[in-house]
Deep mutational scan, measured.
Amino acid sequence: LGLPKMEVFQEYYGLPPPPGAIGPFLRLNPGDIVELTKAEAEQNWWEGRNTSTNEIGWFPCNRVKPY
């Protein structure tokens, strides 16, 4: 089972920042694999864990694709 995984195809370094105070941003590099921890199809921002860095944070969902 486990959490859904997504592959990063466009880098994200915190700009634009996540809206409001939902949480810290998650740095993404192309090729990184992100395990989704909070993701809803109608939301533009998802939370996940970058398996390369083990960091957890928020990122724009348009930077990832199904793994």
Rank of each mutant, 00 (worst) to 15 (best):
T37W: 08
F9Y: 05
R63C: 09
R27C: 12
K65W: 05
A21I: 05
G48V: 00
W46H: 06
E40H: 11
P18M: 01
E42I: 07
N44E: 15
L15I: 08
P4H: 14
V8F: 00
T37S: 10
E7H: 06
P24R: 09
N50M: 03
E42Y: 08
P19K: 05
V64G: 03
R49N: 08
Y13A: 15
R27H: 07
W46G: 03
Y13K: 14
P60S: 02
T51P: 06
Q10P: 02
A39G: 13
P66M: 07
F59M: 02
G23C: 08
G20S: 08
D32H: 04
I56W: 09
L26M: 06
F9L: 07
W58C: 03
V8R: 00
Y12N: 02
P4L: 15
G31Y: 05
Y13T: 12
I33E: 05
T51V: 12
A41H: 05
P24Y: 06
G31C: 07
G14L: 01
G57I: 03
P16G: 01
Q43S: 13
Q10I: 10
P30A: 12
R27N: 08
K38I: 07
D32I: 02
G48E: 03
S52Q: 15
N50G: 01
S52V: 08
V64A: 06
I33A: 04
N50T: 03
E55G: 06
V64E: 00
E7A: 07
E40C: 08
F25Q: 06
G23N: 07
K65F: 05
G2T: 13
L1G: 13
F25S: 14
E47F: 10
R49I: 11
G48W: 02
P16Q: 02
I33P: 01
P17G: 06
E42G: 13
P30Y: 12
G31W: 02
V64P: 01
Q10G: 05
V8Y: 00
N62I: 07
N50W: 01
G31Q: 09
R27S: 10
G48A: 06
P18L: 02
L3W: 09
I22T: 14
W45H: 10
C61I: 06
P18S: 04
N50S: 07
W46P: 00
W45T: 04
P66I: 06
L36S: 02
V34I: 13
P16K: 02
L28G: 02
E42N: 09
T37L: 15
P66G: 09
A39C: 14
Y67S: 12
T51Q: 14
E7W: 07
E47Y: 07
K38H: 10
L26Y: 01
E11W: 03
Y67Q: 15
S52G: 11
G57K: 04
T51S: 10
Y13W: 10
L36R: 06
T51N: 10
N50R: 03
E35I: 10
L36D: 00
L28E: 03
A41R: 13
C61Q: 14
L1C: 15
N54C: 08
W46C: 12
P24G: 09
G31T: 04
P18W: 05
R49L: 10
K5T: 11
Y67R: 12
A21N: 06
W45G: 02
F59W: 01
K38M: 07
L1V: 13
Y67K: 12
C61F: 04
R63F: 13
K65L: 07
R63I: 05
T37R: 11
P30T: 12
P19I: 03
N44H: 14
W58V: 09
E35L: 10
P19Y: 04
E35C: 08
A39W: 11
L15Y: 09
F9C: 15
I56A: 11
K5G: 05
L3V: 13
M6H: 05
G31K: 09
G20D: 14
L36I: 10
P18C: 07
L26G: 02
L3E: 10
L36N: 04
E47K: 08
L36W: 04
L26S: 03
A21Q: 12
Y12W: 00
I56P: 02
L28W: 00
P60W: 01
E35F: 12
F25D: 08
N44C: 07
E7T: 05
P30K: 15
L28K: 03
Q10R: 12
P16M: 02
L15D: 13
P24H: 13
E11A: 07
N54L: 10
N62Q: 10
V34A: 04
L26W: 02
P18A: 05
R63A: 12
G20R: 13
P66K: 07
N44L: 12
E47N: 06
Q43M: 11
L3T: 11
N50V: 04
G23A: 06
G23K: 07
R63S: 14
